[in-house]
């Protein structure tokens, strides 16, 4: 389990903390969604949970961060990378520029971990298949569209077969079909035992989650099952978009109609 207890974080040179006493637990085999408005601190929490802050980003972190009871705050990034990997928002910026093909890009992470050659190849092949981009394997990743690059980046992270996968808006750049593919791949990774933290804005992402944590102004405001959290009418006041189904149910209720009619119609 990856555990954050009472974690606060301040960016270098910042006058105030971006995260305040955050408590979060990521369990193997589960997907935890991270919802919140713009500037709520979702990306920062991803950086802290993924270990990039403060190791690479700088700044100051307080509180406890451990994996399976082991304090990881003194671990160097390369040691943490064996267990935790992080996907960021800008897909083009995450390409290594070293690999000339999509296959090489996806295999880049496992190769860096020093895995045996056959394992590197098989994990890259599996990740390409999971994300549905086998047909792009010989393409130059820098020449793909933003959505395709996002799929390549996610495949590259999955190929590392991490125990903990932190994703900052993984489906933000994707069309509905590609987003569904990625969410399916994330679910598959969780089924294989990975603990996933996924910050997202798009409501369809919550369908892949076992739990959703709501972040507001750097604080965890609520945590619970997606249905429970997202059916709460207050979430729109926190800048979180309601899933279409929840919105429809609410509007039916407001119009004096039985929301269960929707269920029987489908």
């Amino acid at each position: 389990m990856l555990r954050l207890a009472g974690v606060s974080y301040r960016y270098p040179g910042a006058g105030h903390e971006t995260l305040h006493a955050v408590d979060l637990e990521l369990y193997p085999g589960t997907v935890t969604g991270l919802a919140g408005a713009e500037q709520a601190g979702k990306s920062t929490l991803c950086l802290v949970a993924g270990g990039l802050a403060p190791r690479v980003v700088g700044g100051t972190v307080n509180g406890e961060i451990d994996i399976d009871g082991q304090d990881t705050r003194d671990w160097p990034m390369h040691r943490l990378a064996d267990l935790v990997v992080t996907g960021l928002q800008d897909p083009g910026g995450q390409l290594s520029l070293i690999a000339e093909t999509v296959f090489g890009e996806v295999a880049f992470g496992p190769a860096n971990l020093g895995l045996p050659y056959d394992e590197v190849v098989s994990s890259a092949e599996e990740a390409l298949r999971l994300v549905g981009i086998e047909h792009l394997r010989a393409h130059d990743p820098t020449r793909l569209s933003g959505g395709q690059q996002q799929l390549v980046v996610i495949a590259g992270l999955l190929a590392m077969r991490p125990r903990y996968l932190v994703l900052d808006e993984p489906v933000a750049h994707l069309d509905a079909a590609s987003a569904k593919l990625v969410l399916t791949a994330i679910r598959a990774a969780a089924t294989a035992g990975t603990a996933v933290l996924m910050a997202e804005q798009r409501p369809e992402a919550w369908t892949a989650c076992d739990a959703v944590a709501v972040l507001g102004h750097g604080n965890i405001l609520a945590t619970g099952a997606p249905d429970e959290i997202l059916s709460n009418p207050r979430i729109t006041t926190l800048g979180i978009e309601e899933p279409a189904e929840v919105r429809l149910r609410r509007r039916l209720s407001e119009a004096g109609l039985d929301p269960e009619l929707m269920g029987s119609a489908s």
Partner: peptide
């Protein structure tokens, strides 16, 4: 950041 997280 991406290279660090990918064990480079």
């Amino acid at each position: 950041l991406a290279l660090e997280t990918r064990g480079f």
